[in-house]
């Protein structure tokens, strides 16, 4: 039982990071109809900012939580402006190709700048593992696990609330449901797109800060995050923020459970099998957004 609880805690911790990354993917897709395969690269750069701030500059850890979203959000906005805006009229297929290779360009740039296998980042919170008694047994939980899980989830829900209730969120949602209508109502498409990319990028940056200590900073982080974020987003229906959060948590727990009770090879396969089953069984995800009749 204690072992099972420890496995679940570990799964939820990874799941919370997946969820945060997935929300960014969903926000950008919802507002701009762009499927951002470069999101993993943005998360990796967020983790890199953490490394620079915490290890290189030795600034207090909290500055990473402020700087990473700002910098990565701005970068995402710039990428939208320079690369994706000129091809906005192209079909989805072309845009997806562009974001796939944009992701490669981001992680390659990082690799060339650093040229090391992996950069290690210390945990944000320190302290000895806590032993929680459970009947005759006891399970262990670390301060980092608590911090990452709660921090990432709170950030995710804050993003969700912002998208749902704040002014910027309203304009993005208006744009998502009907571009022409939103334009007629005075929303500038350029502004909303820039905003959505900033918002999505900022979430990616935060996901990077949370992921850095437990995953390390390396180009492989970009690949592992993007597949996990997409699987989580697809499970959630790709357009649902709450779906992305639940999808991320579900993925983290299922992965860790299969690692613990089947095999470590199964862990890598299970996320893809989960994706496959969801796509075939419920192509709109487990939490489909209600769609208008305009199809």
């Amino acid at each position: 039982m204690a072992e099972f609880i420890m496995v679940i805690i570990g799964g939820v911790q990874f799941g919370a990071i997946y969820a945060l990354a997935a929300i960014g993917v969903v926000v950008i897709h919802k507002a701009t109809r762009t499927v951002n395969f470069a999101h993993g690269g943005l998360v990796m750069l967020g983790a890199f900012v953490t490394y620079l701030v915490v290890v290189e500059l030795r600034w207090p850890y909290w500055t990473a939580y402020v700087l990473a979203p700002l910098l990565i959000g701005t970068l995402a906005m710039a990428l939208e402006l320079v690369i994706l805006r000129p091809i906005r009229r192209a079909d989805m297929f072309t845009v997806i190709m562009a974001t796939i290779f944009l992701g490669i360009a981001l992680s390659e740039t990082f690799r060339l700048a650093q040229n090391t296998e992996m950069l290690a980042v210390p945990s944000a919170v320190k302290g000895p593992p806590m032993i929680v008694p459970l009947g005759e047994d006891a399970f262990i939980v670390t301060a980092e696990q608590i911090w990452v899980t709660i921090g990432a989830l709170l950030t995710g829900f804050a993003g969700l609330a912002l998208f749902r209730y704040a002014g910027i969120g309203r304009s993005m949602r208006a744009m998502a449901s009907n571009i022409r209508g939103a334009q007629l109502c005075g929303f500038s498409i350029d502004r909303v797109y820039a905003l959505a990319w900033f918002f999505g990028g900022a979430l990616a940056g935060l996901a990077g800060v949370f992921a850095a200590p437990s995953k390390g900073v390396s180009p492989e982080l970009a690949v592992s995050v993007i597949s996990a974020a997409f699987v989580a987003a697809v499970i959630g229906g790709f357009d649902s923020l709450i779906g992305a959060i639940i999808g991320g948590l579900l993925l983290g727990v299922v992965e860790t459970l299969s690692a613990a009770y089947v095999s470590s090879a199964m862990k890598s396969a299970v996320s893809f099998l989960l994706l496959f089953v969801v796509l075939l069984w419920r192509p709109d995800g487990l939490f489909p957004e209600r769609k208008g009749r305009d199809v």
Partner: peptide, 10 residues
């Protein structure tokens, strides 16, 4: 589009 890309990735 992206869903097909994901299936091929699987």
């Amino acid at each position: 589009s992206h869903n097909l890309a994901m299936v091929t990735l699987v």
